[in-house]
């Protein structure tokens, strides 16, 4: 039984504000301000088992976070990010590193679905990239990397999962960015001043969907002070408090909004999305990297 004892902002069951005591059904969700409570009944044994599973998931989540790169706050490329899985374990992963003194590599991948299976798949792919374990592949060539991953991670031999990916290679010497994409929406190059955003992407098949795929690359010059925003679709495929379903077009104007003092760009954008969606978890993983090129 649930009853609101005269709270100012009310207690909601679904879209309905409680005006009288109600009998809860298994799975009902009560909302009080920013807090959500799900009603579940379990035996003590089931509850203990669930507690153990939750603990394991938390450990797994910590492991995933441990694989993500530390922010870069100085040097020829600055990098920071925000990662908020929609469940304990997400299907997104990303990374960046200096391949050599002149070459900076950064990438983001998004496995179809989320949860433990997708997280395991994303960690497998992430570890291959972190360890550069693609024999004979030039990691300065996005097309080679994507094609090699595609052969290695075919969905038939990986639980029916595929992933989208964006992979970029920045050359410090001539300030060029060469990039490739596999079924992923564009990343965006935003010059200093934030007057415009240029999409960096091309149509291409997801990794694992079909063997023998070839991938294209494109190259742009990166003006001094520009930033590149790389993100998963969970950043913009959200439902707002007014039940509006966003697409990429709804999110893009936020990239050009002014920075907020005391807040990183990724934090500012996450806050902006959360302001639109309201309390509660997002539907999909939120992964967003911001690379700045001084």
């Amino acid at each position: 039984m649930a009853e609101d004892n005269g709270s100012t902002n009310g207690t909601f069951l679904g879209a309905d504000r409680l005006t009288a005591p109600v009998t809860l059904q298994e799975g009902d969700v009560l909302r009080m301000g920013a807090h959500f409570l799900r009603y579940e009944r379990r035996s003590r044994r089931d509850a203990e088992r669930q507690k153990a599973i939750d603990k394991d998931l938390q450990k797994a989540s910590k492991y995933v976070f441990s694989l993500l790169p530390t922010p870069l706050t100085e040097g020829a490329v600055l990098a920071e990010w925000k990662f908020v899985p929609s469940t304990d374990l997400g299907g997104d992963a990303f990374g960046y590193y200096w391949l050599d003194q002149d070459t900076f590599v950064f990438y983001l991948l998004d496995v179809s679905g989320h949860g433990a299976g997708s997280a395991m798949h994303s960690v497998s792919a992430l570890n291959v990239l972190r360890q550069r374990a693609l024999p004979g592949v030039d990691f300065k060539n996005p097309a080679e990397v994507l094609a090699s991953l595609n052969e290695r991670f075919q969905m038939e031999t990986h639980g029916g999962l595929f992933f989208t990916m964006w992979y970029g290679v920045y050359r410090l010497g001539d300030r060029t960015l060469t990039y490739g994409s596999a079924g992923h929406h564009p990343s965006y190059l935003v010059p200093t001043g934030k007057a415009t955003s240029a999409p960096l992407g091309m149509p291409a098949m997801m990794i694992g969907a079909m063997p023998g795929m070839e991938y294209d690359t494109q190259t742009v010059t990166v003006p001094a002070g520009s930033a590149v925003y790389v993100f998963s679709d969970g950043v913009f495929e959200v439902v707002t408090m007014t039940q509006e379903r966003w697409s990429l077009d709804n999110f893009l104007p936020m990239l050009l909004e002014p920075s907020v003092a005391g807040s990183s760009e990724s934090e500012r954008l996450y806050d902006g999305v959360k302001k639109a969606t309201g309390p509660g978890p997002l539907e999909d993983d939120f992964s967003l990297m911001v690379l700045t090129f001084p």
Partner: peptide, 16 residues
């Protein structure tokens, strides 16, 4: 109205 990655996966997997 909309196809997410899981929808794409259903079509691709079925086609294969």
């Amino acid at each position: 109205e909309f196809v997410a990655s899981l929808g794409l996966r259903m079509f691709v997997s079925t086609a294969r």
